[in-house]
């Protein structure tokens, strides 16, 4: 008979093997319908565009060059592609403003919820959760109802006689910004609330006891303690903003494109799949940078408290 130690070792080997078998379906599905295709995008970014979309299997770095540059048709010199640069800039700046403004509204909201009595607190959280789980397209569409020319805002302002002509908000950067703030606000409120809920208000009492005023308590005690929630919320808002596609398409009209729309354009009317692939990878890299920033800051702030 095998010794107990051999039996134990065999059991552990079998356990690890079983754990691989158990996780295999999930890993295989994700590989086939998510990760694997991403690797093929990398390959496509180095090929030559086909005349009617698709690719020709010939190596080329033109796709990557075209991300930021354009080749002059007459003298073959390279110059920055202003159209692409402005789209990059719009994506990054709108995502940044969205993050700052959702924080501006989200922080007091999370604070408000966290300071309600436990019973009503659940109701407030629930009220934030409902929009969070509502279809993004429907919420974008709902925003359109408010800001379009015959929409709620313009109708109200005209009825009150404040304006004569409807404000053109639709199809501007402002419309995209409003839409993104509206849609991603719950993603800011929920993680901040999660940190705030754990906040021990005896620390706030201690702050007041040591002569801090309301602002000082907020800045020196509450804010540092819930910083992990603020960072998590900011990253949860910034990353999907960067990759936004539906919101700029519906609210921004055809002209005010963000990176997502630029990518789609290359796979559709633009018929430049390698360029589309290269922009996709660029977008992914931007997201990874944001995530790395988060990982470094999140672990750093935990270390400070531990």
């Amino acid at each position: 008979m095998a010794s107990a130690e051999e039996v134990a070792k065999e059991a552990e080997r079998r356990d690890i093997r079983d754990r691989w078998l158990l996780s295999a379906p999930a890993l295989i599905i994700i590989f086939l319908a998510a990760t694997g295709p991403l690797l093929i995008v990398v390959i496509y970014s180095f090929l030559t565009p086909g005349p009617y979309g698709g690719v020709v299997w010939k190596f080329s770095t033109d796709g990557w060059l075209s991300v930021l540059m354009q080749r002059d048709i007459f003298d073959d010199t390279l110059a920055f592609a202003d159209a692409h640069l402005s789209i990059f800039w719009r994506s990054i700046s709108l995502s940044f403003y969205t993050t700052v403004l959702t924080l501006f509204f989200g922080f007091p909201t999370a604070y408000f919820i966290a300071t309600r009595p436990p019973k009503t607190r659940e109701v407030w959280v629930f009220l934030v959760t409902i929009p969070f789980w509502t279809n993004l397209l429907i919420r974008t569409f709902a925003m359109q109802q408010v800001i379009r020319n015959e929409g709620l805002v313009n109708t109200a302002l005209m009825a009150l006689g404040i304006i004569k002509q409807p404000l053109q908000i639709m199809n501007t950067d402002a419309a995209i910004l409003l839409g993104m703030i509206y849609i991603y606000l719950p993603l800011m409120v929920l993680p901040i609330y999660a940190s705030m809920e754990k906040l021990d208000f005896r620390l706030v009492e201690a702050g007041y006891d040591l002569y801090a005023g309301r602002w000082q308590v907020l800045r020196r005690i509450i804010f540092p303690l819930i910083k992990p929630g603020v960072i998590a919320g900011s990253i949860l808002v910034f990353i999907p903003s960067l990759g936004a596609y539906v919101i700029p398409r519906v609210l921004g009209g055809g002209k005010n494109m963000m990176l997502g729309n630029l990518i789609e354009l290359q796979f559709g009317a633009g018929r430049n799949w390698p360029l589309g692939a290269a922009i996709s990878i660029t977008l992914m890299v931007l997201v990874m940078i944001a995530l790395l920033f988060y990982v470094r800051n999140a672990s750093g702030s935990e270390g400070a408290h531990g």
Binding site: A34, L38, I239, L283
Partner: peptide
């Protein structure tokens, strides 16, 4: 980003 998975 969904758009990237989408084109992939």
């Amino acid at each position: 980003p969904e758009i990237v998975t989408g084109v992939a």
